[in-house]
Every structure is written in C-alpha cells, then in structure tokens.
Design a protein around this nucleic acid. Structure first.
Lengths: 343, 343
DNA sequence: AGACTCGCTGACAGCGCTAACACAATAGCT
DNA sequence: AGCTATTGTGTTAGCGCTGTCAGCGAGTCT
C-alpha cells in the first residue's frame, strides 16, 4: 500500500497499527476499533487482526492514543514519603483498584514539602494524568491554582477538610485523638503527654494535636505547655521521646503517640528502663500497625483503614471519570479505638 | 496568525505551545526551543516567551512531546508488593534519583505473580517508558520476550543472577544466608531451622534457602528435611512459625528467619513463652529493619541497602539512557551480618 | 420499488509537539 | 570585498493514533 519511504524519524522500531493493518489487509482505523470497541468489527476481521497482532507482537502506543483521544489511563498519587508504611499500604490499595480497571499509577513523593508537591503536580499535569490523589488537605497556593485550572478529578486522603473542589477519603484526625484522650481519661489517667512528628504543614498531625488539646480542656485535664516533637516516626524516636518526657515531667502517667512506631518504640524503651506499662506509664498509639498487636504489652491504638483509603480514593476518581453519579465526593472511613494492654 | 477555525477536537482547553507562540509573536518551534534548549534562543526572546508562559499558565504537553521525540521521561518499576516496607524503601530511593533528574516513576505491584508482571510490562511498554526496574531475576517467558523486543534499559534488583540483557543491582542472597549460618555455627549453635516465605518464583527466597542448605552441608550440620514456610511476612507469622518449630523439633537451638519481621515476631513470641533468647533459642533475621535494633533482645540480622538498591538502579537506568559509559551493568551492593544480642 | 435502517469499513484531518532542514542576518577572517 | 562560520528563527513534515463523517451492501418496512 502506502509506499512512502520509511521516514528517517521512525521511533523505536516497534510495530504500529499500520503494520498490523497492512498485514491484515484492512485499514488502520479498523484495527484501532478492533482493539477499542471490538463489537463494531466483524468477528472474522477481528480474528485476523488478532492473529496479525500476535504474529508481529504489536503493542499499542498509548502515548499516541492519549494525544489523539485525551485518555492517558494514568492516575497520579503523591504521598509525603514511602518510608512510612502507612502510605505504602494506601498505595497498594490504589494500585489494586487501578490495575483492575486498566489504569496505571504514577507516583510522587514530596517529602512533606509543599513546593515539591507543586512541582510534582506540574509534572503530572504535563503527562496528562486523568486524576490526582493527594495526601492531606494542605497545599501551596500554586498547587491549588494548577489543579483548579487543570479541571480533573482530585481526591485528598487521610483528611476530611479539603477544599470543596476536591473530593476526599479520610477520617477525622481530630475526633480520633479526642476519643483516645477520652479513653485514657476513663481509665483514670490524668497527666497526659502528646508526642507527634512536626506539625508544620502536616494537617493530619496538627488535627490530632488539636483534638488532644481540646479533649484535655473539655475534660478538665492539666494542659501541658507543649507537645513533644520528634524528628522522625521511627521506633528509636519514640524511645527517645519517652526518655525526654519522663525526665522533664516525671508525673506523666500516660503518653499518646501520634503513630504506632513511636509508641512501640516507647514500649520497648520502657522495657529497657524496667518500667511497667501501663502500671508506671500508659501508652497509646495511632494507626494500628501490626506491631501494635504484637508488642508486649500490646498497644492501644487508633485503627484506620489504610488500604481502603487508597482503594476508595482510586474508586472515587475512576467513578468520576466514568461519569457515574458519585453519591458523595467526601468519604468518611472512620476509625476505631482499639483498646489493648498498654492502657 | 493562523486563522484556522478552532477545531472541534481540541482537548482539555489547556494552553498550547501555539498559544504561547502567538502571544509572543514567534513561531511554535522557538517556544519549544526556549524550553528544551534555551541556549539556542536569544535571551530577549526567551524572556518574552517566559512572560507569556507565566501569563497564560502554559504547561507543556509531554504526551505530545513524547510522541514527537520518543522521550517520555518516565521509568517504570515493578515490585512484588507495597505492603512489605523493604520495597517501599527501595522505591523511595528510585524516586529520589528520578525526580532530581526530571523523570517520573510509574509503579506496578505484581503480588508475586509472574503473569501479572507480564501484564504490567505490557502496559508500561504501551506507555513508552524509557526504562524498567524489576524485582528479582525470575520472569515469565513472555516478559523476557517483551523486554528483549522493546529494546530499553532494564535493571533487576535484589538479586545478581539476572539475564545478561538486563542490568542488575543487588547482592548475593545465597552468600548472605551462607554467612549467617557460618555465624550461627561459630557461636556454637548446631540444630538450625530456616523459616521463609514461600519460595515459589521468588528467587531471593530460594537463593537464601539454598545458601542455608549449602552451609549446613559444608559445616557438617544436621540437615532438616524441610524449610518452614510461612503464609506471610508479618510478625504474627513469625510467632506462629516459632511455635511450630519448637513443637516439631524441640532440639532446635537457632532459627534463621528470611526476614526481620518474622524474626522479630518470633522474639516477641519467645517472650510470651518465657523462653530466653538466645539462651533457649537463638534467632537471626534478614534485612536489618529498624525493629531489629530495637526489639529486646536486639536482633542479629543481615543488613542490605534498600534505599541504595533503588537509587542505584535508577541511576544505572538514567546513565544508560544518557549514553554514559556505564562501568558495570551489574552492581553488587553487598550485605553485612549485623551481630546483636539474639545470637 | 423506493426509502430507510443497520452493520461494517475507510478516508481524512488533526491531537500538540519536535526533528530536520533551510535561510536570513550578523560576525569573523583573509 | 569576498568568503566562511555563527547565531537565531522559521517551514515543513511527521510521531501513531482516534474523532468524524462518508459510503457501501444487505436487509426491513411501507
């Protein structure tokens, strides 16, 4: 057929739609249809096309397809870090849903930095992603502007207080912390300390802190002048935090850690110091990581649905893209206080 | 200038190169150049173009760019699961390098299933990724064929025994296990058990097992009829495995777990059973997760460089793409036996 | 018989960008 | 002055695919 000289610019020598078409003796568009809406193509033609595809190992070029049809079948997700397993687990939830529906995930990690997040958003928009899943509700002005302009479905996770233009899949960090303090109060603890990673532009952490403070106030408990901040969310950081607290405020009878790794680290540290948990000091965590149930004594914590956070967020995006009526763009997945031995 | 009627097919209403060009009074290609190789454009022109870009909020369409230039600036990675933090940490290593060089990561998780891996490879090739990072050296025939055909840099991680057409960044799982057994032997343990996740098509696990078995043989230690397999890599699975072992072979004096979560779970279980570690039974792990140093007693384990596994793999890919002379396409990152209290 | 529908296929144009070449204007050299 | 770089910009022609509309043959309806 077309006897154009092989252009000097042909890319990777991979087979194209045209190659398949030529081999089958149909036109390119028919091959395209056989792949995208097979019901429009005669079954006989379809089979011949399938054979040709198998024979030359044709793989559709989705980049060209995206350019022609504005469908990249790609969703972007940004998490603060992959080094904290809670985000990795959420991503697994996303991937489980996306792969099932023929979408792929393009991943960014912004290291808790809103400017990095903005750069990532820009890079993802350049790649024509169809939807974007962010962590938390705090974003730079530039990010918000970009997303508004881009006009694509956006979902924020781990939080419920996002902008109205974005959907959200999360839970109330405030309530979770508040309820944990209530629990500690019920158990008779009165001198509570709170340990958290830096609150900065981390709305999850700051909401937890607010919930903690509010609960102290409402329950008439003594308010500490400050929160204990840790440099990381590791076991060691938790161990160190416990040390600092016991030194600075030996009267402390319960410590609420904003995540389980810190809390588990504190429990291990208590062992080393021969302190009884919860006898000498009670400890509560957040996340319900596996270690919470396995550490000795087992850890009271707040269970959140990490995998579902991801899968629901992905579903929300895909449903929006499919034009499904989406009942609610704000999904509260809730949390549960899991009471164990440490309190 | 061009007064074509606005085509009915214009995509998302975003600004295009042409819009910028029109606003600046230059041609599209000049704008393209201003962005891709600014040194070719007069600084005055460049500034005007930058202003125009800022004014209308132009974001380049990389999909169109990729189609025209065969550069997607996207690398794909496939890991078995994100639920195991070792892979998430490796991904963080990749992302750190890739973002720094203007590349993005597209992520797949194949759930330890080689057919899923093949489907992912196909999906990534369709997206014109420029390079691919896989976990391990075991792949389906289809995967290998696809990759050979696609003619792009491929790097395998966590292993050194990949196909010659792929690069690799890893360490010897065999040696690591072998050396751990040597260590246990030196410490006087003689009745060793090995616990691992299913070996199936997981070449890391099977190499570790082989190293364990070979070392037993070489050292004249009693060879157990089988390896103890666990259903998952969680703390609980480790605890259960310890229980099974002590019941089935009470003479066991040391257990080598193929990862730290299992090993830490076993240590916690030993606490529950009032067994002394290493007095009653010694325990060794693999990975050197943070918990290894924090658990009581602290855990002897094999340190591997998870973050570097990812960052080096990404570097290897990018260097290959840049046409840098790559000294070696096979990088042995080594490992260290970290001796702690548990042995 | 004529008008109409339905199932299937094709021609053409264009998605937004860049490679390749062309060309004008200026600078540098003998 | 005449020649060759050098610099800066534009023209043209795609990259590989899909939206749109057109057309053909065969069956259906009145």
């Amino acid at each position: 057929m077309s006897r154009k000289p092989r252009s000097p610019r042909r890319g990777h020598g991979r087979a194209t739609l045209d190659d398949v078409a030529r081999l089958t003796g149909v036109s390119a568009i028919t091959v395209s249809r056989a792949l995208r809406s097979p019901e429009l193509v005669a079954s006989q033609t379809r089979e011949k096309i399938q054979e040709a595809i198998a024979e030359i190992g044709y793989i559709p070029n989705l980049v060209a397809g995206s350019l022609a049809s504005i469908e990249s079948r790609t969703i972007a997700a940004i998490v603060p870090t992959l080094e904290n397993s809670i985000f990795a687990e959420m991503l697994q939830g996303m991937v489980d849903v996306l792969h099932g529906r023929g979408y792929q995930l393009i991943l960014g990690s912004n290291n808790y930095d809103l400017d990095e997040e903005e750069a990532l958003v820009r890079a993802f928009l350049a790649r024509q992603v169809e939807g974007m899943i962010l962590t938390g509700a705090a974003h730079s002005g530039g990010t918000t502007a970009l997303l508004d302009m881009a006009h694509l479905p956006v979902v924020e996770t781990w939080s419920l207080l996002g902008s109205p233009s974005a959907g959200s899949v999360g839970f109330s960090n405030f309530q979770a912390a508040y309820r944990t303090v209530e629990h500690l109060h019920e158990r008779g603890y009165r001198e509570l300390a709170f340990v958290s990673a830096p609150v900065g532009n981390n709305d999850r952490a700051s909401e937890r802190r607010k919930g903690f403070v509010q609960a102290l106030e409402d329950l008439g408990l003594r308010k500490r002048p400050d929160t204990f901040l840790t440099s990381s969310f590791g076991l060691r950081a938790g161990a160190e935090a416990l040390g600092v607290i016991l030194e600075r405020r030996p009267e402390t009878d319960a410590v609420f850690f904003a995540n389980d790794t810190l809390a588990a680290g504190a429990i291990l540290e208590a062992h080393r110091r021969d302190l009884a948990v919860p006898g000498d000091v009670a400890i509560a965590g957040f996340d319900d990581l596996e270690i919470a149930s396995q550490v000795i004594p087992s850890l009271t914590t707040v269970r959140v649905h990490r995998h579902a956070l991801g899968s629901k967020a992905a579903q929300l995006i895909l449903d929006t893209l499919d034009g499904h009526r989406v009942e609610s763009r704000n999904l509260d997945l809730g949390f549960e206080i899991v009471v164990r031995e440490s309190t």
